[in-house]
Computed example of a mutant assay.
Amino acid sequence: MRFPSREIVEGIRKRYPAGSRIELVKMDDMQAPPAGTLGTVTGVDDIGSIMVRWDNGSSLSVCYGEDIVRRVCPVCGGSLTCHPALSRRDNKTEICPDCGTREALAAIGVDIEDQEGVIAAIHELKDEKVSE
Rank of each mutant, 00 (worst) to 15 (best):
residue 28 D to Q: 09
residue 61 S to N: 14
residue 93 T to V: 00
residue 20 S to G: 09
residue 85 A to G: 15
residue 69 V to Y: 09
residue 107 A to P: 13
residue 96 C to R: 03
residue 30 M to V: 05
residue 101 T to G: 04
residue 75 V to C: 10
residue 61 S to R: 15
residue 20 S to L: 03
residue 81 T to S: 15
residue 98 D to L: 09
residue 41 V to L: 00
residue 59 S to I: 03
residue 11 G to V: 00
residue 31 Q to Y: 13
residue 32 A to P: 15
residue 35 A to F: 00
residue 17 P to F: 01
residue 94 E to N: 06
residue 119 I to Q: 10
residue 49 S to D: 08
residue 73 C to T: 04
residue 44 V to F: 05
residue 90 D to I: 03
residue 26 K to R: 14
residue 70 R to L: 08
residue 113 E to C: 04
residue 58 S to W: 15
residue 44 V to A: 02
residue 69 V to F: 02
residue 86 L to G: 02
residue 14 K to H: 08
residue 104 A to N: 12
residue 44 V to Q: 01
residue 103 E to F: 09
residue 105 L to I: 01
residue 71 R to A: 14
residue 119 I to F: 02
residue 117 G to V: 02
residue 79 S to Q: 11
residue 66 E to Y: 15
residue 69 V to M: 00
residue 114 D to T: 13
residue 62 V to T: 13
residue 103 E to N: 11
residue 89 R to Q: 15
residue 69 V to P: 14
residue 120 A to K: 14
residue 80 L to A: 09
residue 116 E to P: 05
residue 106 A to I: 01
residue 13 R to F: 06
residue 84 P to M: 00
residue 96 C to M: 10
residue 29 D to G: 07
residue 102 R to F: 11
residue 86 L to Q: 12
residue 93 T to W: 04
residue 23 E to Y: 00
residue 24 L to W: 11
residue 14 K to V: 09
residue 57 G to P: 07
residue 26 K to W: 11
residue 83 H to L: 09
residue 109 G to M: 11
residue 56 N to K: 01
residue 95 I to Q: 01
residue 114 D to W: 12
residue 66 E to G: 03
residue 23 E to T: 00
residue 47 I to L: 04
residue 59 S to E: 09
residue 71 R to N: 13
residue 105 L to A: 07
residue 54 W to E: 05
residue 32 A to V: 00
